[in-house]
Amino acid sequence: MAISAIKNTANRVQQAFYNSMPNFVTGDKADKLYKTAGREISSAENRLILGATALMSQPFIDYSNSKIDEDTRRVAVCRTIAKIIAGTVTGYAVRKLSIKGIQACSHIPEKGMPKWKSFFTPKDVTKANSDEFKQYQNALGTFISLGVMLFTNFLIDAPLTKFLTNNLNKRALANKDTGGAK
């Protein structure tokens, strides 16, 4: 009873949303862009886009946080920038390498092909260049990269974030002492 009432309300809210939304028909260029994005943006590119946009927003959000003192704010901004750079570089590299690795081990089986080359190929696949197969490789590569990142989080991310935070903080302090003359 309660579940169907929630479903009905959710449907009504959604319907109101779609009623207020104008019909949107894409032009040829936008259509091409959407299709390319669907085919080419894997989790690695997604991480890169997130990192680039994070650099454009998060440091400014931290900088305008008036609830903390100036020193804490400076360190928070430096740490945020360092965390974004370290996280994006490692995140992108690990995802990309994992996806490449899966692609190398998921070929359509052929006569005489070493077994490892089709180790990750699902048995239902017949076409190597289909969008579905490419998305499958991206998905599996991304799941494997999550396991790899359990280690790289400690081995690369954390020390690199610390190193970059200290360097950025040192520069910010020097800049403050010279009154931003440099």
């Binding site: 894997s42 989790s43 190929t121 699902p122 048995k123 239902d124 998905a139 991304t142 799941f143």
Partner: peptide, 22 residues
Amino acid sequence: KSNLYKNYGENPGKMLVHTGTA
């Protein structure tokens, strides 16, 4: 492998949400 292929092969957006959350 077959489940991954069926679930995410035609739905890369869902894959991004699930792997992002994971």
